[in-house]
Amino acid sequence: MEAIEWIKFLAGALLLLLGTTIFIFEMIGVFRFKYVLNRMHAAAMGDTLGIGACILGLIIMNGMNLTSLKLFVVIIFLWFSSPVSSHLIARLEVTTDEEQDKHYRRLILSQVEESCERNNCEEKNRKQESREQSNCEEKCRVQAAEKEEVK
C-alpha cells in the first residue's frame, strides 16, 4: 500500500509542478508582449492547461471522492468560460481602441479576393505550364488562409 501512496504522491506532484511551470510561462508571456490582444494569448494558456494540470494533480492525490468530482467540475467550467471571456475582452479592445492602425491592420475580404484573382490571371497568361498554375493556386490559397487568420 505504501508504494501506491508514494506513486500517487509523485504523479500528483509532477502534474502540480507542470501546472505551476505553465503559470510561470504565462506570467513571462504577459510581461513580454506589448499589446493586449497578444497578452491574451499568453493569459489563456494558464486558464486551460495550467489549471487543468494543477487540478488533475490534486485529483490524483485525493483519489476518487466527491471532492475530486467538485474539483473536476471547476476544470470543465473553466474550459467553457475561458473562451467566452477571451472573446468578450477582445471585442472590448477592438471597439474601444482609438489607434487601430498602430496595433493591427484590417483586411477587407472582397478586396483581397479581387487582387488574388487578378494575380492568378496574370500569372496564367505569362506562363501556360500546369505546374505554374498549381503554384499560383497554392499561393492564392495561402493568401486566403492568411487573410482569414488576420480576420
Partner: peptide, 16 residues
C-alpha cells in the same frame, strides 16, 4: 483590457 486580463489570471491562480 489589460487590467481585465490580469484580473482573470488572478482569479485562476486563486482557484488553484
Amino acid at each position: 483590457a489589460d487590467r481585465i486580463v490580469a484580473v482573470n489570471m488572478l482569479g485562476t491562480m486563486v482557484i488553484v
